[in-house]
Amino acid sequence: EFTQISGYVNAFGSQRGSVLTVKVENDEGWTLVEEDFDRADYGSDPEFVAEVSSYLKRNGGIKDLTKVL
């Protein structure tokens, strides 16, 4: 089950073990991109978060400006 990723309007994530599946949706709710990120592939949590965040930004993730990150 996908849940909204904090700080984004149209990005959602689903966690299974160490694998986080993220997706970005358009205004109609269609999935634009979907990608798996395995936490085990990264040396640290900040590196993992930075990679996921960068992916979302590159692929149309819209920041939720009503929330302070």
Rank of each mutant, 00 (worst) to 15 (best):
E1D: 12
E1V: 12
E1I: 14
E1K: 12
E1F: 12
E1P: 11
F2K: 06
T3L: 12
T3M: 12
T3A: 09
T3R: 14
T3G: 06
T3P: 07
Q4A: 10
Q4I: 14
Q4Y: 08
Q4G: 07
I5L: 10
I5W: 07
I5E: 03
I5Y: 07
I5G: 04
S6H: 11
S6P: 14
S6D: 12
S6K: 12
S6I: 10
S6W: 12
G7H: 06
G7W: 06
G7Y: 07
G7A: 04
Y8G: 08
Y8Q: 05
Y8H: 07
Y8S: 06
Y8T: 06
V9W: 06
V9A: 06
V9Y: 08
V9S: 08
V9P: 03
V9C: 13
N10V: 05
N10I: 05
N10E: 02
A11G: 03
A11R: 00
A11W: 04
F12I: 04
F12D: 02
F12T: 04
F12M: 05
F12H: 04
G13N: 04
G13Y: 13
G13C: 14
G13M: 14
G13P: 02
G13D: 01
S14E: 05
S14D: 03
S14I: 13
S14H: 08
S14A: 09
S14Y: 10
Q15K: 11
Q15T: 11
Q15D: 03
Q15I: 13
Q15C: 15
R16K: 11
R16I: 08
R16P: 03
R16C: 14
R16E: 03
R16A: 07
R16V: 09
G17M: 03
G17S: 01
G17T: 02
G17H: 03
G17D: 04
S18P: 05
S18T: 11
S18F: 06
S18C: 12
S18G: 07
V19E: 01
V19I: 13
V19L: 05
V19D: 00
L20N: 00
L20C: 15
L20H: 01
L20F: 09
L20I: 07
L20E: 00
T21H: 11
T21G: 01
T21R: 08
T21N: 03
T21F: 05
T21A: 03
T21C: 07
T21V: 07
T21W: 05
T21S: 07
T21Q: 02
V22K: 00
K23M: 06
K23Q: 05
K23I: 08
K23W: 13
V24W: 03
V24Y: 01
V24S: 00
V24G: 00
E25A: 12
E25I: 15
E25G: 05
E25Q: 12
E25T: 14
N26V: 07
N26W: 06
D27Y: 08
D27M: 11
D27S: 12
D27H: 12
D27T: 10
D27L: 10
E28S: 11
E28H: 11
G29W: 03
G29Q: 04
G29N: 04
G29V: 04
G29A: 06
G29L: 04
W30E: 13
W30R: 13
T31H: 04
T31D: 02
T31R: 04
T31I: 13
L32A: 05
L32K: 05
L32Q: 06
V33M: 08
V33H: 11
V33L: 07
V33K: 08
E34R: 10
E34P: 02
E34H: 09
E34N: 05
E35I: 13
E35C: 15
E35A: 14
E35H: 14
E35M: 14
D36P: 04
D36M: 10
D36Q: 15
D36E: 12
D36L: 09
D36I: 10
D36F: 09
D36K: 12
F37H: 00
F37S: 00
F37Q: 01
F37N: 00
F37R: 00
D38L: 01
D38A: 02
R39N: 02
R39L: 04
R39A: 03
A40G: 07
A40F: 08
A40V: 08
A40S: 09
A40C: 15
D41S: 09
D41A: 10
D41W: 08
Y42A: 01
Y42H: 02
Y42K: 00
Y42P: 01
G43L: 09
G43E: 11
G43I: 08
G43S: 12
S44H: 02
S44I: 01
S44D: 06
S44N: 06
S44R: 01
S44L: 04
D45Y: 14
D45W: 15
D45G: 08
D45K: 04
D45T: 10
D45M: 09
D45I: 08
D45Q: 07
P46V: 14
P46H: 12
E47P: 02
E47A: 07
E47L: 07
E47G: 02
E47I: 06
E47N: 02
E47T: 03
E47Q: 07
E47H: 05
E47W: 03
F48A: 01
F48H: 00
F48Y: 06
F48T: 00
V49C: 15
V49G: 05
V49H: 13
V49T: 10
V49Y: 14
A50R: 10
A50I: 06
A50G: 07
A50D: 08
A50S: 09
A50F: 09
E51L: 07
E51W: 07
E51S: 12
E51F: 10
E51D: 11
V52I: 12
V52L: 10
V52Y: 05
V52F: 02
S53W: 09
S53R: 13
S53N: 13
S53E: 14
S53T: 13
S54T: 09
S54Y: 08
Y55I: 02
Y55W: 15
Y55T: 00
Y55K: 02
L56P: 02
L56D: 02
L56Q: 00
L56C: 06
L56F: 01
L56K: 01
L56H: 02
K57H: 11
K57W: 08
K57S: 12
K57L: 11
K57F: 10
R58V: 11
R58T: 10
R58D: 10
R58I: 10
R58S: 09
R58Q: 09
N59Q: 06
N59T: 03
N59H: 13
N59M: 08
N59I: 06
N59S: 06
G60E: 02
G60Q: 02
G60P: 01
G60M: 05
G60L: 04
G61T: 06
G61L: 11
G61M: 05
G61N: 03
G61R: 02
I62T: 05
I62G: 03
I62Y: 08
I62D: 03
I62C: 08
I62A: 04
I62K: 09
K63A: 11
K63N: 06
D64T: 08
D64N: 07
D64H: 06
D64W: 07
D64P: 04
L65E: 15
L65A: 11
L65F: 15
T66H: 12
T66G: 11
T66W: 10
T66K: 09
T66I: 10
T66Y: 12
T66L: 14
K67Q: 15
K67Y: 15
V68R: 05
V68F: 12
V68W: 12
V68N: 11
V68M: 08
V68L: 11
L69A: 13
L69N: 14
L69F: 10
L69D: 15
L69E: 15
